[in-house]
């Protein structure tokens, strides 16, 4: 994948004759390292597949996921219904495909919500330090101390059941993790010399945090976002499994699984196996991607530092 000339061009010591555009250069190095990391590539392939299937669900699904066909209820996998049918005769393959759309929305929106709140908290705590840090982080700890499912259940019970509310609830659940990760990076960056220099130049606090601290936290935040995406899929499925997830008839993997669970004993295994496998694959993909990104972005293994 990388021939000799390419790795020479990315060498770390020699100044290039004609400097590449900074972003392009960083991106190239990142892509090269990423492609060498099998874990990351595996995660990327699985995640990309998941995203594609979710986006193309309306095209790929052979049936309307809500189309009831009672005579065909509880049929096992067959060429007509690859994943079988549910108790109303709805095509499970189509329902699992459309369930991916719910999972994708949760996986994208939850890290955004959690990050939008958690990252500023972490930056302030890490930059200001002292008592502000103590108060903010103890607050985050107390949120973190709640079991995620319990907190999610409570929040959904309070806000009401809808996809938006579930995403907000999941976002709140994962705020402490973003705050922690961001604070951890910020604390070490604030100690660095270039931040002291910015202070000596008279930069405002906002400028120091946004220009001289935040960019150094982004890789950790990105990894956290990927991990949170996986956790959010699990938690959303769990809430749906408990009956407080996305309201029916919207097909969510967790709610299909909840109904399917009642049919395991009577032999209709496909009802719960396929949504369960979908959850496992999607979560595995995000987790692999997150672990891979962590390896690729880790400054200790970054040859450019």
């Amino acid at each position: 994948m990388s021939d000799a000339t390419e790795s020479d061009a990315d060498g770390t010591t020699a100044a290039p004759e004609r400097p590449q555009s900074p972003l392009a250069r960083r991106t190239r190095t990142f892509v090269r390292r990423f492609r060498r990391n099998r874990l990351a590539m595996g995660g990327l392939v699985v995640t990309a597949g998941f995203v594609l299937l979710a986006l193309l669900a309306p095209v790929l699904a052979p049936y309307d996921p809500a189309a009831v066909d009672v005579p065909a209820r509880l049929q096992g996998p067959s060429p007509a219904h690859p994943f079988g049918t549910d108790r109303y005769g709805r095509d499970l393959f189509s329902r699992v495909l459309f369930g991916a759309r719910i999972a994708l929305q949760v996986a994208v929106a939850t890290p955004l919500v959690a990050g939008a709140v958690g990252v500023p908290i972490g930056l302030v705590a890490g930059y200001v330090g002292g008592r502000v840090d103590d108060v903010l982080m103890r607050l985050m700890d107390s949120v973190f101390a709640f079991p995620a499912i319990l907190l999610g259940l409570t929040l959904v019970a309070v806000f009401g059941q809808s996809l938006t509310n579930i995403v907000v609830a999941l976002g709140i659940v994962y705020v402490p993790q973003f705050a922690r990760v961001t604070r951890g990076s910020a604390v070490s960056v604030v100690e660095e010399e270039h931040v002291r220099v910015a202070r000596s130049l008279g930069a405002s606090h906002a400028r120091i945090v946004l220009v001289h601290v935040l960019p150094f936290c982004l890789s950790a935040i990105l990894v956290q976002a990927t991990v949170t995406a996986a956790l959010a899929i699990v938690l959303e499925s769990s809430l749906s499994f408990l009956g407080v997830g996305v309201p029916s008839p919207t097909p969510s993997w967790g709610s299909i699984l909840r109904v399917g669970k009642g049919y395991v004993d009577s032999g209709e295994w496909w009802y719960s196996v396929f949504p369960g496998v979908a959850i496992v694959i999607a979560v595995l993909g995000f987790n692999l991607l997150g672990d891979g990104l962590r390896d690729v972005l880790d400054p200790r293994t970054d040859p450019n530092r």
């Binding site: 010399e193 000596s200 130049l201 008279g202 120091i208 001289h212």
Partner: peptide
């Protein structure tokens, strides 16, 4: 931290007094 950061000395002074730091590897934002 907030007291001893940018607020301590007025900007006019900062413009007229600048510092060259010891370690050119850590004092430039990478």
């Amino acid at each position: 931290v907030l007291g001893s950061l940018a607020g301590g000395v007025d900007k006019a002074f900062r413009r007229r007094v600048q510092m060259v730091f010891q370690d050119p590897f850590s004092t430039l934002n990478e």
